[in-house]
Amino acid sequence: MGQYTGAVLITLAVIVLAAGLILLGWRNRLRRQSDVPAPPQIPLDANGDPELGDFIGEPAQGVYVCTTTAGDWLDRIAAHHLGIRTNADLSIHPEGVLLARHGAPDVFIPAAAITGVSRSSGMAGKFVEKDGLLVISWMLGTKAVDTGFRPRYHAELPGILARIAAPGAPGTDNNEEPPAETKENQ
């Protein structure tokens, strides 16, 4: 036995204990969130292929940060793999927003479920420069949630936000009155 064997064994025991406690905590979070409904499926045609309209703007590459309870950006939703951070491609369609995640199930946010879109500097363990995250607020069944996405290129963020928030885009009502300043200029 070497002189460091005891220290190595203690270190390994602490690492195994810490990993076990993390897994126990995640399992308990999953159990507490068992009432969270599954995200909607991507609309499919008769052949089972995705049936989404043309892109509104170009898709964006980036990182799916996570989905949290609306307004509580530290309460990560673990159910249905919504709490797993992955690389993703965000595309906006007339039917809604698709986050095609790499290594995890895709997240589809129907246009009718979107309640708002904003920018933030962080959520659930991912903090970046001021207004560096896109946050889509939406209704997952009866639960209000926020989904974060960080585009690979920061310059794309204002365009993505504008396309989601634009009249006729997902989550907007085409019958809304234009702002007062727009009405005056007509």
Rank of each mutant, 00 (worst) to 15 (best):
W138Y: 08
R152N: 12
L52P: 01
T86L: 01
P37H: 02
G168C: 06
S137Y: 00
R150L: 14
L140V: 03
L161C: 15
V135L: 12
V128N: 13
G132L: 02
T182E: 15
Y4A: 11
L21I: 09
R29F: 00
N185C: 06
P179R: 13
F108E: 02
N28R: 15
Q33T: 02
T5Q: 13
D45V: 00
N87H: 11
L82M: 14
E95L: 02
S118H: 06
V97R: 06
G71P: 05
R150S: 15
A124V: 01
R31C: 00
G48S: 02
R119L: 13
G148F: 08
R119I: 08
S118L: 09
A112S: 15
G2L: 05
A155L: 11
G171M: 05
K130S: 13
G171T: 08
A144S: 14
D75N: 12
A19C: 07
L24Q: 12
E176I: 07
Q186D: 13
A162D: 15
L9G: 12
A7L: 12
F149M: 07
K126V: 14
G141F: 09
A144C: 07
D49V: 01
G57L: 01
E177Q: 14
G159D: 13
L44N: 05
A70G: 02
R76A: 09
R101G: 08
P37F: 00
I10S: 13
P178C: 04
L23T: 04
F55T: 11
A19L: 11
A60M: 00
C66H: 01
A124L: 02
I136E: 02
G103A: 05
S120F: 01
A79I: 01
D45L: 02
R32W: 03
P37N: 05
F127W: 14
G96Y: 04
G168L: 07
I42P: 05
A165P: 10
L52D: 02
A79L: 04
S137K: 10
L133M: 07
P178N: 07
R27E: 12
R32E: 13
L134W: 10
P178S: 08
V135R: 11
Q186V: 13
P170N: 07
W73K: 11
L52S: 04
E181D: 15
A162C: 09
A79Q: 14
P94K: 03
F55V: 00
I164L: 05
D54R: 07
K183F: 08
D49I: 00
V117P: 09
L140R: 14
S121I: 00
N185T: 13
S137M: 01
E58Y: 00
K143F: 08
G62C: 06
S121K: 12
D54H: 05
P178G: 06
K143L: 15
T115G: 14
S91A: 14
Q61M: 08
E181A: 12
G168H: 07
Q3Y: 07
N185W: 09
E181N: 15
P39V: 00
P59E: 06
V65K: 05
V63M: 12
G132F: 06
I160E: 12
D89R: 15
G116N: 09
A180Y: 12
A166C: 10
I92S: 10
I160T: 10
A38L: 04
A19T: 03
